[in-house]
Design a protein around this nucleic acid. Structure first.
Lengths: 344, 344
DNA sequence: TATTAGCACTCTCAAGTCAAGAGTGCTAAT
DNA sequence: ATTAGCACTCTTGACTTGAGAGTGCTAATA
């Protein structure tokens, strides 16, 4: 990213902010009025022309104003943006609403994303903690039919994951109950699936486990469940994209976006990288790996318990987004979620 | 609904079918060519003018062709429509896909609605069985914190419902486990919540139940859970509305529809009446009680086990819908679902 | 040398005009 | 009762036009 001189920065900043506000190409005269430097529109035109050459701005056509490119937004976000601090009332509103959400962890996450979506008027997505990261509280086995059984995992935070799986041997509910009880009493509490697996392996090695076949099964199962699944993706406020002129003007685009929201596995891919990183992640336009989102931006942050990331909450919207406002909101919401999951 | 003579019926039928096909006002000449009667376009114009007066057709403006009104569609559905029989391959495809769906009952329902949505290219909604109608297989209590506990109900069909609820007395997980075991062993299997409630009440009266406080709680709880909740609504193929010209041409409308899909409680209200009725329910345009859907149609059918309705599967689309095709698809899908839930 | 005033030029957008096409309603003939 | 024929209406798309916004360039200025 090419460095630009101070005056150009001020102008770029003004262009970005004005464009975010009005969603239309902004001209040199507008900028001249907007910035405190006493500079004529002609000079600004020259600077803007330079910025265009450097790839930070572009003109939709000659004799229109200019629009920041993704690179322009990136420069803005990295070096020019002033992040707005959240006010005490705002913080209170967020924390209060989320903390008083009723229901299980999923309910809390839904409430959080709805709130976030409403406050910043963009679509919001959340990845709920997957079974692999869950610290377990309880496990139940239920026999559904001769070949099928159901496993229900209850996480520390009240999050429930369940999977049906086939078992090739007749087994009674009574026996399953005994196994559930044994596991719950001796193993489950406070461990993750991986730890339980390790434990079972140790037990099996000592050759004293009465239910070794089942345990082996449970092992297989836990391996199969490890990956994130699209069921853990929550989307709220998807219709907020209808408020954005950039989508409304392009119906094909709108349709594509809505389809992505429907096909949640796509979103999972999009947020994948965020799961690994610290802090607020921002990807702008083409920085997104996925074709479908190449003209959208994502602002996301992970929420965590102690040192392991549980999931991600993020905002998806057009590249023209008020990052200075969105970022602190996302950041704080993720913090609140972390706090809640820490306590639970 | 006013009766019309045979010739007018043939013309109305032709107008409806042509309009369904092309989504544009249809003119007298088109009809003249389309129907086997040897009638001139002028005569047809006269008949159409009559039909308009009776409220079955209307003109968007003078000198355009005509469009069937909701009443026109209603007349068509009630008296003129030929319902297309499903072919063996189609039936096979539906039954096969749904039966081989993996996962729990929710997975089956999702698969079914996705399939239906894809086949008839309309949005599809399903109401999953609520906890009140569930025949239980298993029940678990999990202590989440001092004040909160989680109840997990597993239905016969593998459907899971869970609720967090507050309990104002410290209680250990071990004790909860004992209670779960007791309930599972003696009561739960094959009963509905109502029946269990009755059983508990009897036990309590006999004054022998050790866990009477908890049981009272469970009673309260089961009362609270009885109503259908928006969480049981599945929507698949919502973006199918983007294929319909009537919505694409009216963005405001499109937005409203998408919002209804998001706000699932609205859909619950819409389908409410269907839960009570037998067979395929069709409501056209303004027949829908809800303002939001006054220019859409709903074709829905309940699925059931023995004599109690479990839920509903339905298709939502523009009034201009090929009812003759949609109806048998919805009907058969509901049948397959009933069969699956019967077996399970 | 950097800035700026001034101006010609470009492009979009909305409004207006026009002709073609589709379809009707009416009348008069069959 | 039906229909041929025709005038009339309304939409639609193409085209034109003028206003407005904004630029790039040039020449003057500090």
């Amino acid at each position: 990213m090419e460095k630009i001189d101070r005056r150009a920065e001020i102008i770029l900043k003004a262009v970005v902010e004005e464009y975010v506000r009005v969603a239309e190409p902004v001209g040199s005269r507008t900028i001249a009025k907007r910035i405190p430097l006493n500079i004529s529109s002609a000079t600004i035109r020259n600077v803007m022309s330079d910025l265009e050459e450097m790839g930070y701005l572009y003109q939709p056509h000659t004799s229109a104003g200019r629009i920041p490119t993704s690179e322009g937004f990136r420069y803005y976000v990295d070096r020019l943006m002033e992040v707005k601090e959240l006010g005490a009332e705002e913080k209170e509103a967020i924390a209060g609403t989320i903390e008083s959400a009723e229901g299980d962890a999923l309910g809390v996450l839904k409430e959080a994303s709805r709130l976030l979506s409403d406050m910043i008027r963009q679509a919001c997505i959340v990845i709920a903690p997957g079974p692999d990261r869950m610290i377990l509280k309880h496990i139940s086995f239920v026999r559904l039919s001769k070949e099928k059984m159901l496993v229900i995992l209850v996480g520390k935070s009240g999050l429930i994951q369940n999977r049906v799986f086939a078992y090739d041997e007749e087994i009674s509910q009574a026996e399953l109950d005994r196994i559930s009880n044994y596991l719950n009493a001796e193993i489950v509490e406070g461990k993750t699936i991986q730890e339980i697996r390790a434990h079972i392996v140790r037990e099996l090695k000592r050759d004293r486990a009465r239910y070794d076949r089942l345990m082996k099964r449970a092992l297989d199962f836990s391996e199969r469940v490890v990956s994130q699944s699209a069921e853990n993706v929550i989307v709220e406020g998807q219709t907020k994209v209808f408020e954005q002129p950039e989508f409304v003007e392009n119906l094909e685009r709108l349709k594509q976006v809505m389809r992505s929201f429907e096909e949640k596995s796509v979103l999972l891919k999009l947020l994948d990288s965020t799961l690994l990183s610290e802090g607020v992640q921002i990807s702008i336009g083409a920085e997104n790996a996925l074709e479908e989102f190449k003209d959208m931006s994502l602002v996301a942050a992970g929420y965590r318990r102690s040192d392991s990331t549980l999931g991600t909450i993020g905002v998806i919207g057009p590249v023209r987004m008020d990052y200075g406002v969105v970022i602190p909101f996302v950041e704080y919401t993720a913090q609140v979620l972390s706090r809640i999951f820490e306590e639970k």
